[in-house]
Nucleic acid binder design. Structure first.
Length: 762
DNA sequence: TTAGGGTTAG
């Protein structure tokens, strides 16, 4: 099968900037038939009644402003403040600033409107500058101004600004009402030292439910679940926000079960749900994988009429995505409100709800391993002019990494650079992983080196990159450096470093790290870690130790562990033991194709042809499906996929003729195929092995034909590479002086001058 | 005062 849906390029035409609000507004104001607005300039009540309806309608705002200017009413302070407020609500601060500058005799309200606009966008420098300017102009800030600045500091975690305003309030002896006091408390609760929030709270003469809720949140923020719960229990009056705060905090701190109990309690004895409760409840249910309960909550959402709320919609959609119910999620997505198509026609969609919904869907496909669907959906987003933000990009890079679609990954990385998205740790680790998994470890290194103070996931991505490319020592060096810099490794980091040790035969080091994980970092080993250890012993040839480890740790029910062990039996040609393990696996996984294939291969390698045929027969009798071996190569923007003996490619005659010729040339310099060496889980391809038309050879030859000699050839394969193909490619790299890179299901093989980076140890 | 999406392994 061949798929070529990736014929896309990112360019300025794909991602045009949206037309600037200011110019658009004036253009339409001058051309539109304004009579339909029934503009009556002196009636402020008209402005008032239309403000809400027009607050997101750029054209209407433009018309209002244009008319206000031409009729000379713009200098009426009350009217100009209305218009300013509308523009600020539409988030075009450049336009708002221009309007503001046009207003003479600006009052405190005008200043407050503009300040709150910048505050909502998180532009704290502008907020502070304006706050300073208004005082220089002699306009005293009121409680609304102060509250607005403080709230912005709190929502953007800008403690510094909050402290400055707080200091100013104290120095000027401003009378604090409860609202302002709560705003100050909220800043320290969210970003300040906890003890400061606690002291403020205890010093408050008057406290309302909001103050108590803020303190419950403060405890949650520092991870003190017990005190937050006990404070919640002791609240004199619990309102809906109190319940929401505690349930959300518990969910975020991994206490989903406790949060669920509270949710049930709220249904029985608490206040009615609001929109926020639904959103929190859906996230909670999603984190506990209780999709059925989620479906019931969906019913309640419909009964309450909250299905159109953006937050509730995205939480619902994400719950279905995380629960693997992609069809349900797509259905919900397609039912979106009408403004979608309107916006789609005019410019890039910037509705946060739509952007988040799209990114949830992309991530949902990826979580379910449906990478191609994820990429297709992403491309439809781009074609449908939906704004692509760094959340979506992070997911899409992960899809590129897993499918090995380097060109798309590179284009997306270039796009990130071009539009200047902030490279946060999620995006950085995703990019490192993409380059590493696409075979360009150097580019992964470049990104890693450019990252200041990488977090544990970034370190882990780089360690895993080195491990998969067989650079075990480098991975260990990185791991040591990470610990030296005070970053605590997590369970995934240990999987990476143990894999690195295993793939490079670093037995002692691997054992040391396994103990370090348990004894120093207190991480309980999971199946992956046990599998790495069995792999470590087995690969190094200590099959007895590997078996002992399995028994000691009671791992004999884990198929992954036996698979790894079997792989070591193959590597060290211990056919008898391998056959025994195959039988064990067959008992453990009677419906999985893998053990049958492995068992059959073991018998073949031991000249037990009849038994091999029996196993194959049993497999057919039980109608067990096999995974089809596929290899693919990307040239320019096309992905060419091959299966064994594939004749569907347009250039198949050329490919087969070249392959036969190459086969002859390799034999002349010593290559010979050996059926007994082939004992990998490459399934059906085995039987046709002697034909020499395995998918990776077809992909490789196609690469040779279509590229120039200095270009490395990069091939991806969905199964392990077999010994014979490994040998074939080694000889090819020698005779053609070509660098050939193969990514199989476990690791990379870099073939150069007749040698492979895995050292024939995989 | 309370709410939405993303990364590393397997």
């Amino acid at each position: 099968m061949k798929w070529t849906c990736l014929r896309m390029r990112f360019s300025s035409t794909r991602f045009p900037k949206p037309p600037h609000f200011f110019s658009l507004a004036f253009f339409t104001a001058n051309t539109i038939n304004t009579t339909k607005f029934e503009f009556r300039p002196f009636e402020s009540s008209w402005y008032h009644s239309t403000s809400l309806a027009y607050s997101t309608n750029e054209t209407a705002v433009g018309v209002l402003h244009a008319k206000a200017v031409t009729s000379g009413t713009f200098q009426n302070l009350k009217e100009s403040n209305y218009i300013l407020n509308l523009v600020v609500k539409s988030q075009d601060l450049a336009y708002a600033q221009k309007l503001f500058d046009e207003i003479s005799d600006r009052d405190v309200r005008a200043w407050t409107i503009l300040i709150s606009g910048y505050a909502r966008l998180g532009a704290s420098t502008m907020v502070l500058d304006l706050f300073r300017e208004m005082r220089i102009e002699g306009v005293p800030p009121n409680q609304f101004t102060l509250s607005s600045v403080l709230n912005s500091s709190s929502s953007t975690s800008d403690l510094q600004t909050g402290k400055i305003i707080h200091g100013w309030i104290l120095r000027n002896g401003i009378n604090l009402d409860i609202v302002l006091e709560n705003s100050i408390l909220d800043i320290y609760a969210k970003c300040g030292p906890f003890y400061y929030a606690k002291n403020l709270f205890e010093l408050m003469v008057e406290r309302d439910t909001v103050s108590w809720n803020i303190m419950v949140g403060a405890y949650l923020h520092v991870g003190d679940m017990e005190n937050s719960l006990s404070m919640f229990r002791s609240l004199p009056h619990k309102d809906v926000a109190s319940w929401n705060t505690i349930m959300d905090g518990l969910t975020r701190n991994g206490r989903g079960r406790a949060a669920l109990e509270l949710l049930y309690e709220m249904v029985r004895n608490g206040p009615a749900f609001n929109k926020v409760t639904f959103s929190i409840a859906l996230i909670l249910i999603s984190s506990l994988s209780l999709t059925e309960l989620g479906r019931q909550i969906h019913g309640r959402v419909l009964r309450f009429g909250f299905e159109k709320d953006g937050f509730v919609r995205t939480s619902l959609l994400d719950m279905y995505c995380k629960g693997g119910k992609m069809e349900k999620a797509s259905l919900l997505f397609r039912k979106r409100p009408m403004d979608w198509s309107r916006m789609q026609k005019s410019k890039i969609t910037e509705s946060t709800t739509e952007i988040i919904s799209c990114s949830s869907i992309v991530a949902g496909y990826i979580r379910n391993g449906e990478y191609e669907d994820a990429l297709k959906f992403f491309i439809s987003m781009v074609c449908g002019q939906v704004k692509v933000d760094r959340f979506t990009i992070t997911s899409v890079l992960s899809a590129c990494a897993n499918t090995g679609i380097l060109e798309l990954g590179r284009q997306i990385h270039a796009y990130v650079q071009k539009v200047g998205h902030t490279m946060d740790f999620h995006l950085i680790s995703s990019s490192i992983d993409m380059y590493a998994k696409c075979g360009i470890l150097d580019d992964a290194w470049t990104i890693f080196k450019q990252t200041g103070n990488p977090n544990v996931v970034v370190w882990t991505s780089m360690i895993n990159g080195c491990a998969s490319h067989g650079q075990g020592r480098k991975a260990m060096w990185l791991f040591e450096k990470m610990m030296h810099e005070g970053i605590k490794p997590n369970d995934v980091t240990f999987v990476g470093v143990l894999t690195a040790c295993s793939h490079s035969g670093l037995l002692e080091e691997g054992y040391k790290y396994f103990r370090l994980m348990k004894e120093v970092y207190g991480i309980k080993p999971k199946v992956e870690h046990f599998t790495c250890m069995v792999d470590l012993y087995g690969r190094a040839g200590h099959l007895d130790k590997a078996e002992e480890f399995i028994q000691e740790n009671s791992l004999s029910h884990l198929t992954g562990v036996w698979r790894s062990f079997l792989s070591s039996c193959r590597l060290h040609k211990n056919i008898g033991l391998g056959k025994w393990v195959s039988e064990t696996l067959l008992r453990l996984e009677p419906l999985d194709a893998g053990p049958y294939i492995l068992f059959s291969n073991m018998c073949t390698a031991n000249d037990e042809w009849e038994e091999a045929a029996n196993v194959r027969g049993l497999m057919q009798q039980r109608r067990i499906n096999k995974v089809c071996g596929q290899s693919w190569i990307q040239l320019k923007n096309e992905v060419h996929t091959f299966v064994m003996g594939d004749r569907s490619h347009p250039q198949d005659t050329e490919i087969y003729s070249y392959l036969d010729e190459l086969n002859g040339r390799l034999k002349e310099i010593g290559y010979s195929s050996d059926g007994k060496l082939v004992m990998q889980d490459v399934e059906e391809e085995q039987r046709e092995m002697l034909l020499g038309y395995h998918s990776e050879r077809l992909a490789m030859v196609f690469g040779i034909i279509r590229t120039t000699s200095e270009m490395p050839i990069r091939i991806m394969k969905n199964l392990r590479i077999c010994t014979d193909c490994h040998n074939f490619i080694k000889y090819t790299s020698q005779i053609l002086l070509r660098e050939i890179i193969v990514r199989d299901i476990h690791r990379f093989h870099h073939f150069k001058h007749g040698l492979c980076s895995c050292g024939d140890y995989w």
